[in-house]
Design a protein around this nucleic acid. Structure first.
Ligand SMILES: [Mn+2]
Ligand SMILES: [Mn+2]
Ligand SMILES: [Mn+2]
Ligand SMILES: [Mn+2]
Lengths: 224, 224
DNA sequence: AAAATAATTTAGGATAAGCTAAATATTATT
DNA sequence: AATAATATTTAGCTTATCCTAAATTATTTT
């Protein structure tokens, strides 16, 4: 019979979706790390997700999982909740850019379809959240969005920041203090090959900035 | 050590607070009925609530429970969340009068103090929710409010509706269809002693209405 | 190809919150 | 005061989710 979608199940599906962007098959330990639980707990859960009807993941022992169409549907539903909530918290309630994630992570499991619909309307059906992440539409289709990573840029290139990975609120605060927000224009001044540092100029700021690969790998841009 | 406030604990404390308005000591079966769980489950929970440090209720076997000051503080905190949320859902998001309760019942456990604070500000620190129930202020003090029950009124008296018990959304829809909302003026046309029916006129409506005691006992008014 | 290392799974437990059925206590009726 | 009806508690189970420790499987290195 059809599975009850508990909060934990929803969080697992959401994280599996996110991780599968990098590689379609997702390993037990990737999930464990992302959710900050032990690998043994992940094995227990993914075996359950694979055993319900209809299955939410396909599971290969000692190899990993991939979302089924049904699992992906549920994941996108929760991701839509999460990103609409982040946008609402920021735009309508005035939460800081870096404070919305934790709040949305709890609310996403609890709001009704009516709540989802009403905040979407209040916000005018936004296509991106405050971090620039795309929001699936009512039919759970993802809008097209930038996939060029800032770490790929080299000297002389210019770009506009589209999105910033949002799971670390210290990083978000660090970036916003330096003006590195979605929509902002940047140009690359220099690149040092051994440490992969990028020297860049943020439009409207006097000083230049140096960013290491741990940061530039989290920022996605649209080339000019 | 200090108890973790789970959703279930919060729901128990909230319901005990509500029930203790009628009688300070609240019985196991009253709680069981209100929460729609079995009495045996209630016994289990209230024993836990009495055993934590500091205790959240005082418990007398085979008699009932009463909230401790700490238990009351937690209850008021959740009631503030609940009623602010109801007001926000109605006023800001345009939810129907009768749809807000169920949504608030889930969200109340999940919102942060920042969320609470921001919706209070957006709403201008309201003192009453859409059903007319008083909202505890930041220091958890309840505003003064009407305690005259509509069922106590007799022929010739006039009053303004202050609040309507909000746990039954069919009743709320029934009432709003007849114009019986907080703020509306009414006058009593007749009273039949055997069935306790009240015949009344709602200001601005052509026809008069007959209400039985199951309804009039749920409506509170301010006498004119 | 064997050994070492890493990743994954199994087994057994913990905690939270509910349930049913049986036992016990309280209150009401005769 | 005894009996009956009601209310409450206890005991034992269930489900969901997480944990640790031990066992197993897969991968990498020598
Ligand atoms: Mn979450
Ligand atoms: Mn939805
Ligand atoms: Mn609740
Ligand atoms: Mn609060």
């Amino acid at each position: 019979m059809r599975a009850t979608l508990t909060h934990a199940i929803e969080d697992y599906l959401k994280i599996i979706y996110d991780l599968s962007v990098i590689d379609a098959w997702v390993s037990t330990s990737q999930i464990a790390k992302a959710l900050e639980v032990k690998p043994a707990s992940v094995t227990g859960m993914i075996q359950k997700l694979a055993a319900v009807t209809p299955p939410l993941v396909e599971y290969r022992k000692h190899y990993g999982v991939i979302l089924t169409p049904e699992g992906e549907r549920v994941a996108l539903e929760i991701i839509r909740h999460h990103r609409l909530l982040e946008t609402f918290l920021h735009e309508t309630l005035g939460f800081d850019w870096d404070a919305v994630h934790a709040e949305a992570d709890r609310l996403e499991h609890v709001i009704s379809e009516e709540f989802e619909e009403r905040i979407a309307q209040v916000l005018g059906d936004p296509t991106h959240d405050p971090h620039g992440d795309p929001i699936p539409d009512r039919d759970l289709q993802m809008p097209v969005h930038a996939t060029t990573c800032l770490s790929e840029l080299r000297v002389g290139q210019q770009a506009r920041i589209e999105r910033v990975r949002n799971d670390n609120c210290e990083l978000l605060r660090y970036l916003s203090e330096r003006g590195l927000l979605p929509g902002v224009e940047i140009s690359i001044l220099d690149y040092s090959p051994f440490d992969d540092n990028l020297y860049l100029q943020v439009q409207g700021r006097p000083e230049s900035i140096v960013l290491g690969p741990r940061i530039t790998g989290q920022i996605f841009v649209e080339l000019k």
